[in-house]
Write a protein that binds this DNA or RNA. Sequence first.
DNA 1: GTCCAGGGATTCA
DNA 2: TGAATCCATGGA
Length: 282
Amino acid sequence: MRSFERSFKVEEYDLAATLSSGQAFRWKPRGESWEGVIHGRWIALTQRIDGIDARVAKAVEEWDWLIQYLQLDCDISTVIQTFPKDPHLGEAVSTCKGLRLLRQEPWECLASFILSSTKQIVQIQQIVELLCARYGEPIASAAGSAAFAFPTAAGLAALSEQELRDCKMGFRAPYLARTARMVQNEVNLDAISKLELERAREELMKFPGVGRKIADCVLLFAYGFQQAFPVDVWVLKALRQLYFPRRKPTPGRLLRFTQNYFGPNAGYAQQYLFHYMRTKRS
DNA sequence: GTCCAGGGATTCA
DNA sequence: TGAATCCATGGA
């Protein structure tokens, strides 16, 4: 049965926190809803007390793609149970109750995070929006909001460096251009999901502009490797303040700590710490 | 280890 | 309101 709308029942899911927590960059609040694009489909999501309502512009046969993207089958309480019991993480988890990890498309995630380096989230959103509006396929959407798919790797590979720079991405332009060509020609992004964590990370780090941090973002947000633990400026600040208040740990020591201490769902713990640090006080 | 590469949002005086 | 700071970094 084709349908335009569907309600999903889910507990402990904070849509606003999840969609604005710097893991995806295309979600916009509009009235009561959040509008975005998943797998080339425009969609509006609305938070309800007992779940989430979804509305698309073109009727669909099934909604598995959305369940997968939002990770609606994830039992968050089971994840949180695996966290170490410490007051800092506990505070982050209770402050950011309902924060979830998404499961995004690898190419969009990879390209977006190449653009993320030393940019603030607002600016990344602007760059990505410009890129999509100029070079993404127009798609059906609700009246009053034009929508575009995320540009394909082939589409971006065909652009000049200057055309990319004109989307305000600065020195990241050649990285994105070369990565787009690699994805178009030789690298199969789907194959990476079948690899072990370390092998998958190695493969991602072969792309220009992708180091450990960005690789870990893609591993966590697109491929679902829940042990991946991206360390950015905010998380570094959190780790130093909360876990190493006196001494200044070496990068190696810090890396080992993040890999051992937070357990099998370290990536989730990371997301709570990140969002907690970014949103507290203000 | 150091330095550099956009530029705009945010903070601060 | 103008200046300074900062940013989901990586590469040379």
